[in-house]
Structure formats: C-alpha cells, structure tokens
Amino acid sequence: MRVNTALNRMSQLYRVAKARRLGELGLHPGQDVLLWTLAQEPDGITVTELAARLGVEPPTATRSLSRLAGGGWFRREPVPGDRRQVRIVITEAGLKLVPRIEDAWNDLADQIIGSATVAERAIVLSALERANDRLRADLGDQAGDVS
C-alpha cells in the first residue's frame, strides 16, 4: 500500500507543480507536450499523426489545438491532394516557447530529485524506466504512444 499511496500522491503533486510552472508560460498541462511534439516536426504534422504521437484520439488532439489556437504558436496548412487533412506547423513563436517548456520540465525534475547524488539519480531513473516498460507491456495497444 505504501508504494501505491506514494505513486498516487506523487502523480497528484507532479501535476499541480507542472501546472503552476506551465501557467507562467500561458500553458496548461498537456499543451506543453503538444507544442514540444510539433517542434520535433518543423515541416508540420497532420492532426491524425499528432494524435497518434500523443497517444490520444484525433478529436482530442483537435480540441487541444483549438484551446492553443490563440497563442500564435502554430498554424494550420492544407495538405496537398487531401482537402480533408490539415498540417499543423509550429510557428517561430512556438519554437521560441519550447526551450522555456524544457526549462520548466528540467526545473521540476531537479526539484523532485533534490540533492540526490549522480548514482542515486541513476537508480531512480532506472527504476522509473523499468516501471514504465512494465506498464507499457501490461497495457499493450492501450498504452498508445505515451511518453
């Protein structure tokens, strides 16, 4: 029970702390990952491809993009030869925000790990990666492309 309690509490606290940091950037949790993913594809990506990378359904990706639309962080472009599809392309403003997102992530990770030694950090990271691998294996296709 202690492991379950600790994981549940950590998940809640992490989300609140992350929301606070992202709020300073004008973002909500999830929007950071969406923009970061777009930055990995400077030529753009379709909503369907974006949804698959985020591990969500296309309507969820579309709603998330709608919530972000006012920031000027991406633009929609038609896909040549397929009038039903649009490419989502990160803008210069979006690209400038990505390092600030990464800084927020790094600051949060540093706060969580605290004054752990290099060896202790390696143990924590290894344990977390193995736990994620076991959960992905258990969930199979239901895990999507959650990173």
Rank of each mutant, 00 (worst) to 15 (best):
W36F: 07
P80Y: 06
R63H: 06
L38V: 07
G81D: 14
D82R: 05
W36D: 06
L13Q: 08
N4C: 11
G55N: 02
L65V: 02
D133S: 12
F74Y: 10
L95G: 14
P80T: 04
R67D: 06
L128K: 14
E57L: 01
Q40Y: 03
W36L: 09
L95P: 09
V146R: 04
L38M: 06
L50C: 03
Q111S: 11
E102C: 07
D138Y: 15
L95V: 08
D107H: 13
L34D: 02
E129G: 11
S126T: 14
A52S: 09
G70P: 08
R20D: 07
D103S: 12
G70E: 10
L38A: 04
T48N: 05
R84I: 00
N132Y: 14
E41L: 11
L125V: 12
A61W: 08
I101M: 00
H28W: 13
F74G: 00
A17F: 03
I90G: 01
R130K: 14
V79T: 05
G70L: 07
G70A: 01
E49K: 06
I123Y: 14
G55E: 01
R21F: 03
S115R: 12
L38H: 03
L7A: 12
V3D: 15
E92V: 06
V118F: 13
L139F: 08
L139W: 11
A61K: 00
I101R: 08
A93P: 05
R15A: 11
R134K: 12
Q142N: 10
I88N: 00
R21E: 03
E24K: 13
Q40C: 11
R84Y: 04
W105L: 05
N132P: 13
D138W: 15
F74T: 00
V86H: 01
E92C: 08
W36V: 09
I90H: 00
M1H: 10
G81E: 14
R9A: 12
I123S: 14
D138K: 10
E77S: 02
A93C: 03
H28G: 02
N4I: 14
L108H: 06
E49R: 09
L7D: 06
Q142Y: 09
D43T: 15
L35I: 05
A109L: 15
R130W: 09
G72M: 02
G44W: 01
A69E: 13
N4T: 15
L35D: 00
V3Y: 11
L54R: 01
R130C: 02
M1T: 15
R121S: 05
L25W: 10
D141E: 12
V16L: 14
S147E: 09
A39E: 04
D32L: 04
L139Q: 10
I123G: 07
V3R: 15
R21Y: 06
T5V: 15
E77W: 04
P58Q: 04
P58D: 04
E24Y: 12
T62Q: 06
T117V: 08
I113E: 10
L50V: 03
